[in-house]
Amino acid sequence: MKKKVECKGQNKFYVLHFAFLLPPTLRERKRYIVFEVISEREIAKRELVEEINDAIYSLYGDVGASKSRIWLIGYKKKKKDEDTGTDVGVGILRCAHDKVEEVRAALACIHSVNEARIGIRVIKISGSIKGATRLTKSFLEKSSTLKHQISN
């Protein structure tokens, strides 16, 4: 059975795809973790994903990792931060809303990526992706404005 969906000015596929999304009441609750990475050299997104997965699996096992539902949404590099004197990158990690502390511990356990030493610090936890991206942008443009937020 194929139903033809008619929709003005919109793509047919888009509408079909939209129909498969869960209704808001059935969706799982999430949190977006905005974190910064201080590293010896530039870190690629793929390397970081592998390392975060490895940390989560080694700390909580397969079952625990499946419950935390982590997903790296984005990672951007900022070349040579003046404040730290090292390479700094900012990323957004999505996870389950009740597993934030567990994921935070796993992030703290990461100490190197392919023999380059790194340190991860969580900047902020956001409930929406809008807030998380806004924070990331402001961090990449100006780190001084964020320092004020962290100190409070």
Binding site: R104, A108, G119, R121, V122
Partner: peptide
């Protein structure tokens, strides 16, 4: 400097 962790991370650990 890469061995330091922020206080909230240490509390989680």
């Amino acid at each position: 400097i890469y061995d330091l962790r922020a206080p909230r991370e240490i509390i989680a650990l």
